[in-house]
């Protein structure tokens, strides 16, 4: 059992991860007291190396957790701030190209990424201006309607 105190996007998370070894495919993780079953998808080396991950590198930790199925839940808190917003996927498709990077300043109507769906290249534009805080998908990823794509602050 390992305990972490993480700070993601200014929010504190107490994370408990049970013992995970090479053979594990599922980890039991508690975030702020809520239990999640996290599926481990091909990240063995990251898991097995002794994580001397201190709160100083919260990003690395969250990246380790996020690919799994339970990922969206701990993120809810981060999505909430009233100034920012999450760009959601309007229709199921494949991410063809991501036009922005984290930290980029974007303006209203700017194309953030291109989504191939219904055999068309669809521009996903920014509803409002802001700074790209997080990109939650990768090029080539298959995304569903309502999935979170990019967080703008």
């Amino acid at each position: 059992m390992k305990d972490y105190s993480l700070k993601i996007n200014g929010h504190n998370y107490d994370v408990q991860i049970d013992d995970v070894n090479d053979a594990s495919t599922v980890a039991h993780v508690k975030v702020n007291g809520t239990a999640y079953e996290v599926e481990i998808v091909g990240a063995k080396s990251a898991v097995t190396t002794k994580p001397h991950v201190a709160p100083a590198h919260p990003a690395a930790n969250s990246a380790m957790i996020t690919p799994a199925t339970a990922a969206p839940s701990p993120r809810i808190g981060a999505v909430a701030p009233s100034t920012g917003y999450t760009v959601k996927c309007p229709l199921p498709g494949t991410v063809l190209n991501i036009n922005v990077k984290v930290g980029d300043q974007v303006s209203t109507g700017q194309t953030l990424l291109i989504l191939e769906a219904m055999k068309m290249e669809n521009n996903i534009d920014a509803d409002r201006g802001g700074v790209v805080k997080e990109i939650l998908v990768q090029q080539g990823a298959t995304v569903m309607e309502g999935d979170n794509l990019i967080i703008i602050e």
């Binding site: 309007p90 068309m120 521009n123």
Partner: peptide, 10 residues
């Protein structure tokens, strides 16, 4: 409007 969501009907 093909510019949004390929102009699908939803």
């Amino acid at each position: 409007q093909p510019k949004f969501m390929a102009g699908v009907l939803d």
